Amino acid sequence: MRTLRDTLDGLPETQARIARMIVADPEWAVQTGVELLAERAGVSAPTIVRFARAVGCEGVRDMKLKLAGSLALGTPYVHRSVRPTDAPGEVVRNVVGSVTSMLAEWQSSIDPARIEEAVAAIRTAGRVDTAGTGATSHFLAHDLHARLFRLGIPSNSFADTHLQLTAASCLTRGDVLVAISYVGRMPALLRTVAVARRAGATVVAITRTGTPLHRAADILLAVDVPGDATMRVGTDATIAQLIVIEILSVRLGLALGGRATSRLAAIHDLLQSEQLDSDDAPALGGG
């Protein structure tokens, strides 16, 4: 934000108009697609891309990430899209709108080729370990583990860092470690990744581009979303990682075909017969 304000006078008129638009409503600019940015500024979409590069960013997505980061560092708000004066209905609309806008923008950056690389590695693996460090990453690792064994893929997930390290040492060539960390620089997880790589396993990382975890991995499934104003791993990051896991699971199920479908059908029928997965199931405890 400060960079845009400081350079306004030295920019050509078209670029200055874009900069003034962003400075006037930075929260909106972070959440808005290229076409709408161009429409409001009265320029073409390629002009927005050129502007982003002119102010030192790799592209529009990088510009938005940096803009969101500057807002998070200086904002007094508990959420980047919510103002202190917002009414309850506005809070609902702005929080939900922020997430949906993030997803719409982030979707265009997902690389299907990297998804397919991960699917190919996991599908043929003798064993797949999932690991994360921190509350959110642990939850996501266990969620992926639960999806994998339902598909018939041998998998493990350990919350204890010592067990993660020990398990990684037991991996072999052809096995896979899926390491999950939005922050991407947790020392214990990076040690586990290093051990897995030495053992010959393929490492799939669900993290941001450019983190130490990304650099240590064989396959990156990127979750480059705006930072949170108050939490290191906010709602946007959690949802984006969950969606990566969902996409990965769906593609694995499709790739495995009838074998996976029959297993999932059998699990569904079992839970239904035991009345554990039905709206008509009795309350736990018999009360």
Rank of each mutant, 00 (worst) to 15 (best):
L140Y: 11
A120V: 11
A125Q: 01
A125M: 06
E117T: 11
Q164Y: 01
A135N: 08
H142V: 10
Q164N: 03
L151S: 07
L165P: 04
A146R: 15
A121P: 00
N156Y: 01
H138Y: 13
T130C: 06
G134H: 06
A121N: 03
L151W: 05
A159I: 09
T161G: 02
A131D: 07
R150Q: 01
A131Y: 05
A131Q: 12
D129C: 02
P154H: 03
Q107D: 11
G126Q: 10
R147A: 10
A120R: 15
I115Q: 04
L151Y: 05
A120F: 06
F139Y: 14
A120D: 14
A141S: 15
D129S: 06
S157R: 00
I153R: 02
L163C: 01
T133V: 14
I122D: 08
H142P: 00
L151K: 07
G134S: 05
H145R: 13
D111H: 13
L144D: 01
S137N: 13
S157K: 05
D129E: 09
E116L: 14
F149A: 00
T124W: 06
G132S: 12
Q164T: 06
M102P: 03
A135L: 12
S108Q: 15
M102H: 11
A159V: 12
A131N: 01
D143K: 01
L151R: 09
T130G: 01
L140K: 10
R147E: 05
